[in-house]
Protein backbone atom coordinates (compact mmCIF):
# COMPACT_ATOMS: atom_id res chain seq x y z
CA UNK A 1 0.00 0.00 0.00
CA UNK A 2 1.72 3.18 -1.11
CA UNK A 3 0.61 6.69 -0.34
CA UNK A 4 2.11 10.13 -0.35
CA UNK A 5 3.50 11.10 2.99
CA UNK A 6 1.55 13.92 4.54
CA UNK A 7 3.30 16.77 6.23
CA UNK A 8 3.05 15.36 9.71
CA UNK A 9 4.49 12.06 8.66
CA UNK A 10 7.28 13.75 6.69
CA UNK A 11 8.27 15.81 9.69
CA UNK A 12 8.19 12.76 11.91
CA UNK A 13 10.42 10.66 9.71
CA UNK A 14 12.73 13.60 9.20
CA UNK A 15 13.04 14.19 12.89
CA UNK A 16 13.74 10.57 13.63
CA UNK A 17 16.37 10.41 10.91
CA UNK A 18 18.18 13.52 12.05
CA UNK A 19 18.01 12.43 15.65
CA UNK A 20 19.53 9.13 14.66
CA UNK A 21 22.35 10.85 12.77
CA UNK A 22 23.03 13.23 15.60
CA UNK A 23 23.15 10.55 18.20
CA UNK A 24 25.16 8.10 16.14
CA UNK A 25 27.70 10.71 15.02
CA UNK A 26 29.15 11.75 18.36
CA UNK A 27 29.25 8.18 19.57
CA UNK A 28 31.47 7.00 16.74
CA UNK A 29 33.57 10.16 16.91
CA UNK A 30 34.06 9.74 20.62
CA UNK A 31 34.99 6.13 20.20
CA UNK A 32 37.71 7.02 17.72
CA UNK A 33 39.00 9.95 19.71
CA UNK A 34 38.97 8.22 23.04
CA UNK A 35 42.63 8.25 23.84
CA UNK A 36 42.06 6.35 27.05
CA UNK A 37 41.05 3.31 25.05
CA UNK A 38 44.72 2.83 24.23
CA UNK A 39 45.71 2.63 27.84
CA UNK A 40 42.86 0.48 29.09
CA UNK A 41 43.65 -3.14 29.92
CA UNK A 42 42.04 -5.98 27.96
CA UNK A 43 40.86 -7.48 31.18
CA UNK A 44 40.77 -6.76 34.89
CA UNK A 45 40.66 -9.02 37.92
CA UNK A 46 39.65 -7.59 41.27
CA UNK A 47 40.50 -9.56 44.41
CA UNK A 48 38.74 -8.95 47.70
CA UNK A 49 35.99 -9.94 50.09
CA UNK A 50 33.17 -7.60 49.16
CA UNK A 51 31.45 -8.81 45.96
CA UNK A 52 29.96 -5.40 45.12
CA UNK A 53 33.26 -3.55 45.59
CA UNK A 54 35.12 -6.12 43.50
CA UNK A 55 32.59 -5.83 40.70
CA UNK A 56 32.85 -2.05 40.72
CA UNK A 57 36.64 -2.03 40.84
CA UNK A 58 36.92 -4.51 37.97
CA UNK A 59 34.53 -2.55 35.78
CA UNK A 60 36.24 0.75 36.62
CA UNK A 61 39.56 -0.78 35.61
CA UNK A 62 38.35 -1.61 32.11
CA UNK A 63 37.04 1.91 31.55
CA UNK A 64 34.03 2.20 33.80
CA UNK A 65 30.41 1.59 32.96
CA UNK A 66 30.14 4.86 30.99
CA UNK A 67 32.35 3.26 28.35
CA UNK A 68 29.60 0.71 27.68
CA UNK A 69 26.32 2.32 28.73
CA UNK A 70 25.22 5.71 27.40
CA UNK A 71 22.50 7.93 28.78
CA UNK A 72 19.05 6.65 27.90
CA UNK A 73 20.25 3.17 26.94
CA UNK A 74 18.11 0.11 27.53
CA UNK A 75 20.32 -2.44 29.25
CA UNK A 76 19.89 -6.19 29.58
CA UNK A 77 21.90 -8.02 32.24
CA UNK A 78 22.23 -11.80 31.91
CA UNK A 79 23.14 -13.45 35.20
CA UNK A 80 22.86 -17.14 36.08
CA UNK A 81 19.64 -17.69 37.99
CA UNK A 82 18.37 -20.87 36.38
CA UNK A 83 18.52 -23.07 39.44
CA UNK A 84 16.44 -23.22 42.57
CA UNK A 85 19.33 -22.87 44.98
CA UNK A 86 20.84 -20.23 47.19
CA UNK A 87 23.95 -18.10 46.50
CA UNK A 88 26.19 -20.48 48.48
CA UNK A 89 25.46 -23.33 46.05
CA UNK A 90 27.22 -21.32 43.30
CA UNK A 91 24.82 -22.41 40.56
CA UNK A 92 23.59 -18.84 40.31
CA UNK A 93 25.45 -15.53 40.19
CA UNK A 94 26.17 -13.83 43.51
CA UNK A 95 23.23 -11.39 43.84
CA UNK A 96 25.42 -8.56 45.18
CA UNK A 97 27.47 -8.64 41.97
CA UNK A 98 24.35 -8.46 39.80
CA UNK A 99 22.99 -5.63 41.92
CA UNK A 100 26.22 -3.64 41.65
CA UNK A 101 26.40 -4.06 37.86
CA UNK A 102 22.79 -2.84 37.62
CA UNK A 103 23.64 0.10 39.86
CA UNK A 104 26.63 1.05 37.72
CA UNK A 105 24.43 0.87 34.62
CA UNK A 106 21.92 3.14 36.29
CA UNK A 107 24.64 5.60 37.27
CA UNK A 108 25.84 5.62 33.67
CA UNK A 109 22.37 6.79 32.67
CA UNK A 110 20.57 3.61 31.61
CA UNK A 111 16.86 4.31 31.19
CA UNK A 112 15.79 0.75 31.85
CA UNK A 113 17.65 -2.26 33.19
CA UNK A 114 16.25 -5.76 32.70
CA UNK A 115 17.83 -8.73 34.40
CA UNK A 116 16.75 -11.73 32.32
CA UNK A 117 17.16 -15.48 32.23
CA UNK A 118 15.21 -18.43 30.88
CA UNK A 119 15.30 -20.56 34.01
CA UNK A 120 15.42 -24.35 34.28
CA UNK A 121 13.92 -25.11 37.68
CA UNK A 122 10.59 -23.95 39.09
CA UNK A 123 10.59 -20.23 38.19
CA UNK A 124 9.39 -18.82 41.50
CA UNK A 125 11.87 -20.89 43.46
CA UNK A 126 14.74 -19.88 41.15
CA UNK A 127 13.98 -16.20 41.53
CA UNK A 128 13.41 -16.20 45.27
CA UNK A 129 16.26 -18.53 46.26
CA UNK A 130 18.83 -16.87 43.99
CA UNK A 131 18.03 -13.61 45.84
CA UNK A 132 18.74 -11.71 42.62
CA UNK A 133 15.30 -10.00 42.49
CA UNK A 134 15.60 -9.16 46.18
CA UNK A 135 18.97 -7.43 45.71
CA UNK A 136 18.08 -5.76 42.40
CA UNK A 137 14.84 -4.33 43.80
CA UNK A 138 17.10 -1.80 45.52
CA UNK A 139 18.19 -0.38 42.16
CA UNK A 140 15.65 1.96 40.51
CA UNK A 141 14.37 1.18 36.99
CA UNK A 142 15.57 -2.40 37.34
CA UNK A 143 13.37 -5.46 36.91
CA UNK A 144 14.21 -9.15 37.15
CA UNK A 145 12.33 -11.64 35.03
CA UNK A 146 12.22 -15.23 34.01
CA UNK A 147 11.35 -15.25 30.31
CA UNK A 148 9.92 -18.47 28.87
CA UNK A 149 6.79 -17.82 26.83
CA UNK A 150 7.27 -18.36 23.12
CA UNK A 151 5.84 -14.97 22.26
CA UNK A 152 8.71 -13.27 24.06
CA UNK A 153 11.24 -14.64 21.58
CA UNK A 154 12.03 -13.78 17.99
CA UNK A 155 13.60 -15.94 15.29
CA UNK A 156 16.96 -14.41 14.42
CA UNK A 157 19.35 -15.51 11.66
CA UNK A 158 22.86 -16.64 12.59
CA UNK A 159 25.11 -15.53 9.71
CA UNK A 160 28.07 -17.82 8.95
CA UNK A 161 27.06 -20.25 11.67
CA UNK A 162 28.82 -23.60 11.61
CA UNK A 163 25.97 -25.35 13.39
CA UNK A 164 23.18 -22.81 13.69
CA UNK A 165 21.30 -21.12 10.88
CA UNK A 166 18.92 -19.29 13.17
CA UNK A 167 17.77 -19.22 16.76
CA UNK A 168 14.97 -17.67 18.78
CA UNK A 169 16.29 -14.87 20.98
CA UNK A 170 14.43 -12.93 23.66
CA UNK A 171 12.86 -9.94 21.91
CA UNK A 172 13.81 -7.75 24.83
CA UNK A 173 17.48 -8.56 24.29
CA UNK A 174 17.21 -7.74 20.58
CA UNK A 175 15.58 -4.43 21.48
CA UNK A 176 18.18 -3.52 24.09
CA UNK A 177 21.06 -1.13 23.43
CA UNK A 178 23.55 -2.87 25.68
CA UNK A 179 23.95 -6.48 26.79
CA UNK A 180 26.00 -7.25 29.88
CA UNK A 181 26.82 -10.82 30.91
CA UNK A 182 27.25 -11.51 34.61
CA UNK A 183 27.87 -15.25 34.87
CA UNK A 184 29.11 -17.19 37.85
CA UNK A 185 32.15 -19.38 37.38
CA UNK A 186 30.90 -22.95 37.21
CA UNK A 187 31.54 -26.34 35.77
CA UNK A 188 29.21 -27.92 33.25
CA UNK A 189 28.55 -31.59 32.58
CA UNK A 190 28.51 -31.11 28.81
CA UNK A 191 30.49 -28.01 27.89
CA UNK A 192 33.11 -28.36 30.63
CA UNK A 193 32.57 -24.90 32.04
CA UNK A 194 29.61 -22.56 31.87
CA UNK A 195 30.69 -18.90 31.83
CA UNK A 196 29.63 -15.89 29.78
CA UNK A 197 29.59 -17.76 26.45
CA UNK A 198 27.62 -20.80 27.58
CA UNK A 199 25.45 -18.50 29.68
CA UNK A 200 24.09 -16.79 26.56
CA UNK A 201 22.01 -19.94 26.07
CA UNK A 202 19.79 -18.54 28.80
CA UNK A 203 18.58 -15.93 26.31
CA UNK A 204 17.48 -18.56 23.79
CA UNK A 205 14.08 -20.23 23.54
CA UNK A 206 15.11 -23.75 22.70
CA UNK A 207 18.41 -24.60 24.26
CA UNK A 208 17.72 -28.32 24.33
CA UNK A 209 18.42 -28.60 20.65
CA UNK A 210 21.88 -27.19 21.28
CA UNK A 211 22.60 -30.38 23.11
CA UNK A 212 20.66 -32.89 21.09
CA UNK A 213 20.86 -31.67 17.51
CA UNK A 214 24.06 -29.65 17.22
CA UNK A 215 27.67 -29.89 18.11
CA UNK A 216 27.32 -28.00 21.36
CA UNK A 217 30.74 -26.36 21.33
CA UNK A 218 30.48 -24.91 17.83
CA UNK A 219 26.85 -23.97 18.43
CA UNK A 220 27.87 -21.91 21.47
CA UNK A 221 30.39 -19.99 19.36
CA UNK A 222 27.83 -19.48 16.55
CA UNK A 223 25.40 -18.08 19.10
CA UNK A 224 27.94 -15.73 20.64
CA UNK A 225 28.68 -14.08 17.30
CA UNK A 226 25.07 -12.86 17.49
CA UNK A 227 24.74 -12.50 21.26
CA UNK A 228 27.99 -10.71 22.03
CA UNK A 229 27.82 -8.73 25.25
CA UNK A 230 29.47 -5.31 25.41
CA UNK A 231 30.78 -6.14 28.85
CA UNK A 232 31.34 -9.33 30.80
CA UNK A 233 31.60 -9.44 34.58
CA UNK A 234 32.43 -12.95 35.82
CA UNK A 235 31.52 -13.69 39.41
CA UNK A 236 34.45 -15.61 40.89
CA UNK A 237 33.63 -14.88 44.49
CA UNK A 238 33.17 -18.64 44.64
CA UNK A 239 32.95 -21.18 41.85
CA UNK A 240 31.07 -24.44 41.38
CA UNK A 241 34.12 -26.50 40.61
CA UNK A 242 32.24 -29.74 39.90
CA UNK A 243 28.65 -30.91 39.70
CA UNK A 244 27.71 -28.04 37.41
CA UNK A 245 25.60 -26.57 36.04
CA UNK A 246 22.95 -27.35 38.64
CA UNK A 247 24.98 -28.71 41.51
CA UNK A 248 25.28 -29.89 44.13
CA UNK A 249 29.04 -29.93 43.69
CA UNK A 250 32.31 -28.73 45.09
CA UNK A 251 32.18 -25.00 45.83
CA UNK A 252 35.56 -23.21 46.02
CA UNK A 253 35.90 -19.59 47.18
CA UNK A 254 38.22 -17.61 44.85
CA UNK A 255 37.27 -14.13 46.08
CA UNK A 256 37.67 -12.46 42.72
CA UNK A 257 35.64 -10.76 40.00
CA UNK A 258 36.74 -10.50 36.37
CA UNK A 259 35.66 -7.77 33.93
CA UNK A 260 36.35 -7.50 30.23
CA UNK A 261 34.69 -6.28 27.05
CA UNK A 262 35.92 -9.52 25.43
CA UNK A 263 33.72 -12.46 26.45
CA UNK A 264 36.27 -15.06 25.32
CA UNK A 265 39.05 -13.39 27.29
CA UNK A 266 36.88 -13.16 30.40
CA UNK A 267 35.94 -16.83 30.17
CA UNK A 268 39.53 -17.85 29.45
CA UNK A 269 40.72 -15.95 32.53
CA UNK A 270 38.10 -17.63 34.70
CA UNK A 271 39.16 -21.06 33.46
CA UNK A 272 42.81 -20.28 34.17
CA UNK A 273 42.15 -18.97 37.67
CA UNK A 274 39.80 -21.75 38.78
CA UNK A 275 40.14 -25.40 39.60
CA UNK A 276 37.77 -27.65 37.65
CA UNK A 277 36.94 -31.23 38.45
CA UNK A 278 39.94 -31.29 40.79
CA UNK A 279 42.41 -30.20 38.14
CA UNK A 280 43.86 -27.06 36.61
CA UNK A 281 42.91 -26.36 33.01
CA UNK A 282 44.30 -24.16 30.26
CA UNK A 283 41.66 -22.06 28.45
CA UNK A 284 42.26 -23.93 25.16
CA UNK A 285 41.39 -27.19 26.88
CA UNK A 286 37.77 -26.06 26.89
CA UNK A 287 36.39 -26.83 23.45
CA UNK A 288 34.08 -23.88 23.03
CA UNK A 289 36.74 -21.41 24.22
CA UNK A 290 39.29 -22.92 21.86
CA UNK A 291 36.81 -22.78 18.96
CA UNK A 292 35.87 -19.19 19.82
CA UNK A 293 39.49 -18.05 19.77
CA UNK A 294 40.19 -19.90 16.51
CA UNK A 295 37.17 -18.29 14.92
CA UNK A 296 38.23 -14.85 16.21
CA UNK A 297 35.22 -14.24 18.41
CA UNK A 298 37.70 -13.01 20.99
CA UNK A 299 41.10 -13.73 22.46
CA UNK A 300 42.15 -16.49 24.79
CA UNK A 301 45.91 -15.88 24.71
CA UNK A 302 46.10 -14.56 28.24
CA UNK A 303 49.90 -14.35 28.15
CA UNK A 304 49.76 -11.66 25.42
CA UNK A 305 46.99 -9.57 26.98
CA UNK A 306 47.20 -6.60 29.25
CA UNK A 307 45.60 -7.70 32.46
CA UNK A 308 45.13 -5.39 35.40
CA UNK A 309 45.04 -6.89 38.86
CA UNK A 310 43.44 -5.00 41.70
CA UNK A 311 43.74 -5.93 45.37
CA UNK A 312 41.00 -4.58 47.58
Amino acid sequence: MSHKPDRREFLKTGLIASAAMLSAGPATLLGALDARAEELPDLAVAYGRDPAKMARAAVEAVGGMKRFVKAGNKVVIKPNMSFASGPKAASNTEPAVVEEVARMALEAGASRISVLDNVLHAPNECLSLSKIPEYCSRVPNTTVHNVQAKRMFKETPVPNGKQLRSMEIMTEVLDADVLIAVPVGKSHSSSGVSLSMKGMMGLIYDRRSFHSRYDLHDAIVDMCFVLKPALVVVDGTRILSSGGPGGPGKVIPLNLVIASPDMVAADAQMVALGTWYDRKLEPHQVRHIRNAAERKLGRSDLQNMSIKKIEL
Binding site: A84, H121, A122, E125, P248
Partner: peptide, 17 residues
Protein backbone atom coordinates in the same frame (compact mmCIF):
# COMPACT_ATOMS: atom_id res chain seq x y z
CA UNK B 1 23.36 -29.30 47.84
CA UNK B 2 25.09 -26.58 49.82
CA UNK B 3 22.90 -23.54 50.16
CA UNK B 4 19.94 -25.86 50.06
CA UNK B 5 17.88 -26.94 47.11
CA UNK B 6 14.26 -25.96 47.38
CA UNK B 7 11.69 -28.65 48.10
CA UNK B 8 10.10 -27.73 44.79
CA UNK B 9 13.34 -28.11 42.87
CA UNK B 10 12.05 -31.08 40.98
CA UNK B 11 8.59 -29.71 40.53
CA UNK B 12 8.82 -27.27 37.67
CA UNK B 13 6.85 -28.35 34.64
CA UNK B 14 9.63 -27.05 32.42
CA UNK B 15 12.61 -27.78 34.54
CA UNK B 16 15.44 -29.78 33.15
CA UNK B 17 18.37 -30.13 35.51
Amino acid sequence: GPGGLAPGTFDAPDSAP
